[in-house]
Computed example of a mutant assay.
Amino acid sequence: MSFIRTFHGDIDPDKLGFTYSHEHIVCRPPYWVEQQADDLLLDDKEKSKLDVLDFKNLGGQAIVDATAIDYGRDVQAVKKIAEETGVTLIGTAGFNKSFLWNAAIPDHLKNVTGDYSTYYKWINDKSINELTEFVVREIEEGLECTNIPGGQVKFGTGYNRITPLEEKTLRAVARAHHETKAPMHSHTEAGTMALEQIEILKSEGINLEYMSFGHMDRNPDPFYHEKVAKTGAFLSFDGISKIKYAPESTRIHCILELVNKGYEDQILVSGDTARKSYYKHYDYGLGLENILGKWVPRFIEEADQNGFDGKKLVDKFFVQNPKRCFTFKK
């Protein structure tokens, strides 16, 4: 039996449709709250909803909300956005990266994590198996003790390093995958450490075809991308619209390099739109409409100029590949 697990239960993978594979919809990351970094707080459900509607009005059908517990997700608000817009939303169990764990755990999560002061202490004190049980509950029972199930499991590592606690959560998430068959996603800081993550995942017996590695376009290295792709994993080019990191020509070049090498079935595309200044209805940014409205036409034109079928590739990246990537296979 194959299905995709959404905020409203399980659906047939064929019903997923045009999908952004890595976004953040409503969240107040505790670390950034403490730093008073307002730009990183997506804290207005109605403004987020307007951007989701822009996406829908251009033909978008589904969004993966990659916000884990340590990044301040608001599962009830996101569920309401799904209900009010008709856009399919997929939630995320698991963890992000270690520097976020110095933040205090909000009071409303003490019933989930126990009476711990910080994420660091909670993760440090718990065994791998106890963390695994937590992630399994979020997939099978619901995120944060709600009845809203997670649709993927996530772990993360920092820039050019994997700390002991990051390895601990990686192993916990891998074991939760074995128990639930949930799709797996990785945060790679600036696109680094994917190959090192792969070695740990292999030691846990993970079939890499269940994995998607995030932020691959933050490390625009075609040789590196091919090494990851050879494992069978998905590569998420989820920094679209962020010109401060690289021009779109660089991202498109890396994507077409992978296509040329035969890996078109392993590419995902999204925006990781996690700042007010990226959102149209918070702070006049390009918004969730930009990829569908402007990047996709530009990609099709550039792909066609290089001898590829741009429309076919767009269908792969936003429809066919997400349908396979986010499917539970039991």
Results as ranks from 00 to 15, higher is better:
Thr157Gly: 12
Ala82Thr: 06
Pro297Gln: 06
Asp217Cys: 05
Ser21Lys: 00
Leu268Tyr: 01
Trp101Ile: 01
Pro29Ile: 09
Ile162Trp: 02
Ile69Trp: 08
Thr146Pro: 08
Gly239His: 02
Arg161Lys: 13
Lys47His: 05
Asn111Met: 14
Glu302Arg: 14
His8Asn: 14
Lys330Gln: 13
Val112Phe: 12
Tyr120Cys: 06
Ala174Asp: 10
Val52Glu: 05
Tyr278Ala: 04
Gln266Ser: 14
Met211Phe: 10
Glu166Arg: 06
Glu289Thr: 10
Tyr282Phe: 14
Phe7Asp: 05
Leu201Met: 10
Glu140Arg: 12
Gly310Cys: 02
Asp107Gln: 13
Tyr210Phe: 13
Val296His: 01
Lys276Glu: 02
Met211Cys: 15
Glu46Ile: 06
Arg275Asn: 08
Glu302Val: 15
Ala66Met: 13
Glu179Pro: 00
Phe3Lys: 08
Tyr284Trp: 12
Glu167Asp: 06
Val75Tyr: 13
Gly214Tyr: 03
Thr273Pro: 08
Asp38Gly: 08
Lys242Pro: 05
Thr113Gln: 04
Thr92Glu: 07
Gly307Pro: 04
Tyr120Gly: 08
Asp54Phe: 11
Thr118Trp: 02
Ile123Lys: 02
Asp125His: 13
His225Asp: 05
Ile11Asp: 10
Leu143Thr: 00
Glu167Lys: 13
Leu235Gly: 09
Gln266Ile: 03
Lys280Glu: 06
Glu226Tyr: 04
Leu41Val: 04
Tyr120Met: 09
Tyr120Lys: 09
Pro30Val: 02
Cys325Asn: 02
Phe317Trp: 09
Glu130Cys: 05
His177Gly: 00
Thr188Pro: 03
Leu58Thr: 03
Cys254Phe: 11
Gln197Glu: 13
Lys79Asp: 12
Gly287Ser: 04
Asn96Asp: 06
Glu138Asp: 12
Glu189Lys: 11
Ala66Ser: 09
Glu199Ala: 14
Glu199Ser: 11
Leu258Phe: 06
Gly293Glu: 11
Tyr282Gln: 03
Thr118Ala: 10
Lys261Asn: 14
His225Gly: 01
Pro164Asn: 07
Gly310Ala: 04
Asn306Lys: 15
Lys121Met: 14
Lys311Gln: 15
Gly205Asn: 11
Ser186Glu: 08
Leu288Ile: 01
Ser270Gln: 02
Asp10Pro: 03
Ser249Phe: 05
Cys145Asp: 13
Asn102Met: 11
Leu256Val: 04
Asp65Gly: 05
Phe213Val: 10
Lys168Thr: 01
Tyr120Val: 05
Gln266Thr: 07
Ile128Val: 15
Ala68Cys: 14
Phe213Ile: 11
Pro247Arg: 01
Asp38Ile: 12
Asn57Gln: 06
Lys323Gln: 15
Lys181Asp: 12
Arg137Ser: 14
Ala82Trp: 04
Arg171Ile: 10
Lys45Cys: 06
Tyr263Val: 01
